[in-house]
Nucleic acid binder design. Structure first.
Lengths: 125, 125
DNA sequence: CTGACTGTACGAGTTTACTCGAACCACCGA
DNA sequence: TCGGTGGTTCGAGTAAACTCGTACAGTCAG
């Protein structure tokens, strides 16, 4: 595809046991208004959408998304997504890999992820 | 049901011609992230949910919702909902009546209104 | 051990949203 | 004409969110 964005190629996580997820709300604790608030930011909406559309077999680190923001900003946004229950984060050595909690979200708010996947960014970045 | 909330009984709008809607985004201009931001506030989520569940033949004024907030606050929240494209407002004499833009929202974000209708408020007010 | 890599924690500045009082306006009925 | 009702606008205070630099911590390869 377009080769401008770095990091689209990323090695899979080291094979072996899967680390435990970082602290996150249980399925029944995910609140719709918190999910809405998390998705009201275009950057975060784009993160979830990209994970839904382009992640293949394995989950990805924060740098895979090619966002040109400082690391502390990315930490903030990914933590917001995790606190809202949208993504799950696992620590693979030094890297932290992200995936969408598809089963939990589909069970709790069916159809919502489809809207995110079909979302059109306001301006092509 | 519970008789604590005032204004559940409300007369229908005066019969006759229907006023034009107040300025609002066209169907294709409704942005998902703006809708999410509007629904991230529990008060506004409750407004849309109540309209979906309890409005019957006609649309309702702001006081029908029984919200104990100053009028200027309600103006702010209803304007936020209208700017995001969630509700349509029409001026009936001195009163302003609200309805959910069901057809527009269902066409643009199918399934989203169902999530709002099934939403559970964090604490029963 | 040292450096590269990924990411956190803290703190501060800036912006945005929410909240509300006060003054005002339009309409309607008596 | 005079309230009462329903709602707006302005402005300001407060709270929350976003943004980011700096410093630091853990892992891994050499």
């Amino acid at each position: 595809m377009s080769g401008t964005v770095p990091g689209l190629q990323e090695p899979p996580p080291p094979a072996g046991e899967v680390p435990e997820p970082l602290p996150e709300p249980a399925r029944d604790e995910i609140r719709l208004e918190a999910v809405m608030a998390a998705l009201s930011d275009p950057l975060r909406m784009g993160v979830v959408r990209k994970l839904l559309l382009e992640s293949e077999e394995f989950d990805h680190t924060c740098t895979w998304f090619g966002l040109d923001r400082p690391k502390s900003s990315l930490t903030h946004h990914f933590r917001t997504l995790r606190d809202a229950g949208l993504i799950r984060q696992r620590q693979y050595g030094p890297a932290r890999r992200n995936q969408v909690r598809i089963a939990d979200l589909e069970a709790r708010f069916p159809g919502l992820l489809r809207l995110v996947a079909e979302w059109q960014p306001p301006a092509a970045r």
